[in-house]
Design a protein around this nucleic acid. Sequence first.
RNA 1: CGGGUGAUAGCGCAGCUUGGUAGCGCGCCUCGUUCGGGACGAGGAGGUCGGGAGUUCAAAUCUCCCUCACCCGACCA
Length: 472
Amino acid sequence: MAKAPIITPQGEDFPRWYQDVLNKAQLAENGPVRGTMVIRPYAYAIWERMVSEMDARIKAAGAQNAYFPLFIPENYLQREAEHVEGFSPELAVVTHGGGKELEEPVVVRPTSETVIGEYMSKWIQSYRDLPLLLNQWANVVRWELRPRLFLRTSEFLWQEGHCAHASQADAAAYADRILREVYEDFMVNELAIPVFTGRKIPEERFAGAINTLSCEAMMRDGKALQMGTSHELGQNFARAFDIGYQDENGERQLCWTTSWGTSTRMMGGLIMAHGDDRGLLVPPRIAAVQAVVILVKDDDAGAVGDSTRRIGAELAAAGVRVKVDDAASTPFGRRATDWELKGVPVRIEVGPRDLAENLVTVVRRDTGEKFPVALNELTVKVAGLLEEIQSSMLSEATARRDAATVTVNSIGEAVEAAATGFARIPFDLLADGGVDELGRSAVTVRCLQLEDGSTPVEDHAPGAIALVARSY
RNA sequence: CGGGUGAUAGCGCAGCUUGGUAGCGCGCCUCGUUCGGGACGAGGAGGUCGGGAGUUCAAAUCUCCCUCACCCGACCA
């Protein structure tokens, strides 16, 4: 059946494809104010899964959740010179409240280092209070000039960790631990998205940080997406907010702070790292709906519909996040297509012909593979299939990324490679304006790694490799 | 914020040059026939033509201002 494609093929126009998926899979749309976003229930359910998995890892890393206010006194931001300089252009500032002009304007948090720093300062007295490991789930506002749903919106949801440590070594170790045990682990094992981790070059650092680490993922158009960052803030904020403690010898010391964040941008990464020409493709572990049981066609007695619902209930009882689609008044093909668009990993088709033989037809969303499964084996088979799809999606994504990542030895080659993917280039070759030269071709340094993939601990580590790409 | 393009039904668009009853496709509702990969027929609902001002007997159409969106350039999770 040669039908017009439901969504724009990726190869034809990737941004258009992204928009189509957002619309057709009912994920998100623009809010009434420029740059704002409405997250629709299906996408929000996936976000809730992300929150739940991330939150568990954050707690396992020792951090505790807390909540700090949305409104921040403007003067807090100004206490850290680089911080205020970095964020000023994108601040939303409240000048009126209660019908009157405020004596001091209040900013809507773009990030919470400053408010949290103020309270850390009060809460930390002794080395016994350290490390203080906090995290909050919140919305933040950064006025964006060119918003894109999920990827760059003026308001977004995120998690921001804020910690105070006794020494620089502890701070560095924790920033790295979060990057690996929380971020990389979550992205690889839950989102099935391989990431390059590494150190940001000074120009790309968080405003006020002495070191920024990041996770960089490759989207299916070969562009990079920064999926998470973890910062060493040195003593910059500790100094500005007087976050200090008395050590074992009774000496007054300044803390070393860190901060780290991941946001709803990960939704954009999920869509663009896995989605194909049939729509979204959600890895089973993060899927809000792992399997849909779809009634193909009922019989006069309604027995097939009853079986469909019973099968759904059995799978749910076995712990599968399942949805029953028994809306037989809508043509089967239409519903099948809709669930594919939404990226549900497993589809279980129940029709009279199947039931006559005590089986159902199971379809994998990732491969399109279709096969019969005996009813009495369904629960076990589905559980196994979900795991298989999860690992297969990760290997597919990894293979795609590695095939599009090349090692080069000149800026010209790097620019060429960045047209379709990532390039690894010795950082030395980018000295003397090389970064700017890349920039003229819209190519940026995503992060620095050492030859063995480990993270450099200084800005000009000998032998550092720059991972460069076009990026979102 | 600069340059370009645009805004007409939920979505995609025509109509504008040459002012004169607001249209098409998809989607939606009803009924019937269908139903194992986006079904078909008949009937129907749905629009202050982005907002405001102006020109005119008359404006979706002409003029001005504003707002918003998309693409391209300077910043970011």
